[in-house]
Simulated assay, not measured.
Amino acid sequence: MPLAKDIKRGMIVTYQDAPCLIESVQVQTPSARGAATLYKFRARNLITKQKVDISLKGTEGLEEANFERRPVTYMYADAQEVHFLDSQDFNEYVLPREALEEELKYLKEGLEGLFVLIYEGQWVGIQLPVAVELKVVQCDPYVRGASATGRTKPAVLETGLVIQVPEYISEGETVKVDTRSGEFLSRV
């Protein structure tokens, strides 16, 4: 059982008898002597899809959820459903689109490194790779001679995701994006 200090963003733990995906971690250090450090977690219940707030002292912990991870490849999405192909037994997983609204921003056809999460025989979500490569389809043009400061500009990626990229990035380039934070990592 991991202690509160060992629980990181992206882990799946059991809270109130349900698997919960940790989405953010906030640490409150006490100002008084002898007081315990508080860890506040924002999680998403993978069965009900509701947000859950969890507060733990540093000496408390949560059990890791016992679930199965199966590698899948994203095939396509239509108006109501998202389709994945199991990489091991070639079964097709069809999942409701509204259950994957956040993840859809990073999915493109043929994307590998995805896992479907199965808890007690029931599909509960997908796990994205840490970083994905997406093409820039719209952004302001690069201006030669612009200052070399770390200024950024918005860019629309092929999936519709809008991120901030450095000024030197132009349309048609491929960029690497962190799926945990939605931030630009590098040019590919």
Rank of each mutant, 00 (worst) to 15 (best):
M1L: 08
L3M: 11
L3P: 04
I7D: 07
R9S: 12
I12E: 01
T14R: 02
A18S: 15
P19F: 04
E23P: 03
Q26T: 15
T29K: 15
S31E: 15
R33C: 06
G34K: 05
T37R: 08
K40N: 07
R44Q: 15
R44D: 07
I47N: 03
I54C: 11
E60N: 14
G61W: 03
E63N: 10
Y76F: 11
D78P: 08
Q80V: 05
S87D: 15
S87I: 01
D89G: 02
F90G: 00
Y93V: 05
L95M: 08
E98V: 13
E102M: 05
E112R: 09
V116D: 11
E120T: 07
E120M: 09
G121I: 01
G121R: 07
W123F: 10
L128R: 04
P129D: 04
V130H: 10
L134V: 05
L134Y: 05
V136L: 03
V137D: 00
Q138P: 01
P141M: 02
G145I: 06
A148M: 11
T149S: 14
T152M: 13
P154A: 11
V156W: 05
L157I: 01
I163V: 13
E171N: 10
T174I: 11
R180H: 06
G182H: 04
R187P: 00
